[in-house]
Nucleic acid binder design. Sequence first.
DNA 1: ATCAATAAACCGACCGGTCGGTATGTAAAG
DNA 2: CTTTACATACCGACCGGTCGGTTTATTGAT
Lengths: 195, 195
Amino acid sequence: MSRPNDTRNHILLTAQHLFAHSGYAATGVAEICQAAGVSKGAFYYHFPSKQDVFLELLNRWLAGIETAMQTISQQDQPIPQIFLNLTDMLPSVVQSADGQLPMFLEYWQQASRDPLIWQAMIDPYRRFRQFFTLLVQRGVEAGDFRPMEAEAAGQVILSLAVGLLLQSLLDPQGADWPALARQSVGLVIRGWERT
Amino acid sequence: MSRPNDTRNHILLTAQHLFAHSGYAATGVAEICQAAGVSKGAFYYHFPSKQDVFLELLNRWLAGIETAMQTISQQDQPIPQIFLNLTDMLPSVVQSADGQLPMFLEYWQQASRDPLIWQAMIDPYRRFRQFFTLLVQRGVEAGDFRPMEAEAAGQVILSLAVGLLLQSLLDPQGADWPALARQSVGLVIRGWERT
DNA sequence: ATCAATAAACCGACCGGTCGGTATGTAAAG
DNA sequence: CTTTACATACCGACCGGTCGGTTTATTGAT
């Protein structure tokens, strides 16, 4: 039972909450420390900088998504069903804890400006795109989908996911987003199925 | 020729550039003033606060998109073609000037946190959704699309647009985004067309 | 078992600098 | 003389990060 590691994780989780609530720039290190019940010294003992905390949060998040997607895609089910299953886990994967969905936007924004964050995000992102493309290909080969440009189709699915996530962030109460996601993906998939 | 109005617009444009480049939080008022060749006094003469500048930028942007979409949708063409035309103008509409695409993310992020910004964004956003839904309905009634849940379909189109925008922001060089958008929308639309 | 020695973990005052915003002054226009 | 359209100087709050010092845990010799 290592207390230092507990402190580290506690800082990480607290920072995640505050970043999600107020944004990266608007959240001060002092604020994180106070909320975590830890001194500034402890913070800088465990992390070289505020950005470093953010980076670790991002890496953990991306790794979590990747493993979840891998797990689901290895189910022995028809491809269209796998797409629906992936859609169902979309909300839960993006928010590892409650209310963590805003971090999605925070990650994206930082990535589009900070080269370090960008570098951490771009490779997993490209793997996601590749992942969806491969799923579509498998679907075409299995005869579930009609022949089509798999790369564009994978792009469509990814865009759909990203777009839904972003909208649910803007207007969480405006719709039943998990249900809407399922319906949307279903509508696209049905248009692709062999008739 | 009103010089004060020129100054106002100049401040607005300069702020837009800087916000797009470095983000809202990271761009200081002093920085805007210096880049615009104007004193802080001039800035606060024309605007009550930094946030107010942002808000006006947002309103202009939304109004621009709305009129552009209205114009295109009134073309006398089959609905599927109108969707493709809308897709083609997507890149140009989102960036009123060069390099202004990052403002999209900036607007979204602020809207998801600041109630004032949110209020300015949510109504136009809902109109956009309604707009796409109506287009789909027109398409179904005209016999271009097979019967379908128009609301979900409209949601799909909007999600696709938002998702593509966000991705093009993350990896501008990673793909030919206008072409990819056209291909993606085409792929979805084709799946909905009457066969 | 005890205790000195060392390292790890942590504290909080403090630093230079930057922030959004304000107060005051002023030159030109009407 | 008043109003408009600015410019300049300045304010207190806050920022990320540092630093000298203190507490706690671990180790090794006795």
